[in-house]
Amino acid sequence: MIGFATRRLIQALIVMLVVALLAFTMFRFVGDPINQMVGIETSIEEREALRERLGLNDPIPVQFLRFVTKAAQFDFGTSYQFRQPVSELFAKRIPATLELSLTSALFALVVGIPMGIYAGLNRESPISKLFLSVSLVGISLPTFFIGILLIFLFSVTLQWLPSFGRGDTVQIGSWWTTGFLTASGLKALILPSITLGLYQMTLIMRLIRAEMLEVIRTDYIKFARARGLPDRLVHFRHALKNTLVPVITITGLQLGAIIAFATITETVFNWPGMGLLFLQAVQNVDIPIMSAYLLLTAFLFVAINFIVDILYFYIDPRLRVGRP
């Protein structure tokens, strides 16, 4: 177990280093950082002095090392547009994105998993076919258009729910703000989290259904039926457990994807999260924010993958127990 975890940790570290190299390349070579920091009237000497002070004349490996050390301490430099440290900008916006992502992930899992199991077990039933058609519409509608439709219906036409912002928030601790504790905060959360979760929900449902269909055809399921085991045992103890391994992988990846897709949802609903910040950075070529966002999301994905690998280890005895 410890060997397995260490190997995975080392792999995760390597991935992070590669991403850091990418982020650094972006940071250092896309556009001139000095030009972005100073005004037009700054003299060449002043620029050169600043360059020296920032260490931009050091050998590249030294610069990279400095970049990584700083990033590990959450120091990502200063935003070109806002003239503020990137880490401060992020800290303010992380709670909004995380609350939105968590809510929609929960929605996707709670609705998607049972639908997938049902459709996998009752392949021919009309309800399964309905689920499947709905899911196809779900993956065909682009996220942003779902958002627009929901706003048009529930905000503009019916005027039931707000179409932008987080509503009222409550301060918890020194920097966390939550919308979970106020009525308007919860109301504001409904449309964005459905928008964000719908696509993931359909994906999870379709995946579980496909895996179920695959597992049901294996010899050990046939043998379990031939032993006369009741359907309940065959379906839930044998079939479902064997579908878990691939399902957990993809679900893990999808939960990571939610953070990325939040960018779109946050734009549509003007949700003050990291995604909105990132998008503004892309539009204004604000490289420090872009590279920090890249590092942060990479870290989240790598962490999720690591957890998924450890989960495997508990589910699949073939990894846990060696051959005699």
Binding site: M26, L253, G256, A257, A260, V282, V285, M290, L294, T297
Partner: peptide, 17 residues
């Protein structure tokens, strides 16, 4: 590990830069 949309956004941002 990165969703396509994020990569496309990044490439777009870099290209713009």
């Amino acid at each position: 590990t990165f969703p396509a949309i994020l990569i496309a956004l990044l490439i777009d941002g870099i290209a713009a830069g």
